[in-house]
């Protein structure tokens, strides 16, 4: 992905905080587990949960759940319509450790503030103008995030 000068400026502008447009009175849900980024990775599984690779594979392709295919190509046979916004995820586990994958799914803006990828377990208080049904919610639950990670680590 090459960025032209104009696009780069655009990214910078996009980063500038816009005041007066946020109406964030969202509270952190009780069951939200906190996490910590260290060395560009999140070592501990969210809430200490175990992921399930099979469920993870369903979550990545379900457009109501992860909808990862909206932006990424994944090695799942039978799926033709996928997005080309993000890099293909084949072989992702040979490029990154589990902990490095985790930070990218939880909230990748911790390592790349300009990323356009949604943070699937981003602090809901950071979301600007969420739709009513999504207020105070994360994109995926902690269990679903761990399931997705369990699936991704199989992509060697």
């Amino acid at each position: 992905m090459s960025l032209r000068a104009g696009q780069f400026i655009l990214l910078l502008v996009a980063l500038a905080p816009v005041t007066g447009m946020t109406e964030n009175a969202v509270a952190l849900p009780d069951n939200y587990c906190s996490w910590e980024v260290k060395d560009y990775a999140i070592e501990e599984p969210l809430c200490g949960l175990d992921g399930d690779a099979l469920r993870g594979k369903q979550i990545v392709s379900d457009s109501n759940l992860g909808n990862c295919l909206a932006c990424h190509q994944l090695p799942i046979p039978g799926i033709e319509a996928y997005g080309t916004i993000g890099p293909p995820l084949q072989g992702i586990a040979s490029r990154y450790t589990e902990a490095q994958i985790r930070v990218r799914i939880v909230d990748t803006r911790n390592i790349n503030p300009m990323s356009i990828m949604p943070g699937f377990y981003r602090d809901p208080r950071l979301i600007n103008r969420p739709g009513k049904p999504y207020r105070g919610k994360t994109f995926l639950t902690a269990q679903q995030v761990e399931d997705v990670i369990a699936y991704l680590v199989t992509l060697k």
Binding site: Q7, L10, L11, V13, A14, V18, M21, I85, I116, P118, G119, R122, I127, N128, R129, P130, G131, Y134, K137, F139
Partner: peptide
């Protein structure tokens, strides 16, 4: 150019960058 919603992208992300 403001990010909105759970998808957390701005209009320009989709329509100017991609």
């Amino acid at each position: 150019q403001t990010r909105f919603g759970l998808i957390d992208m701005s209009c320009s992300h989709c329509h100017s960058l991609y």
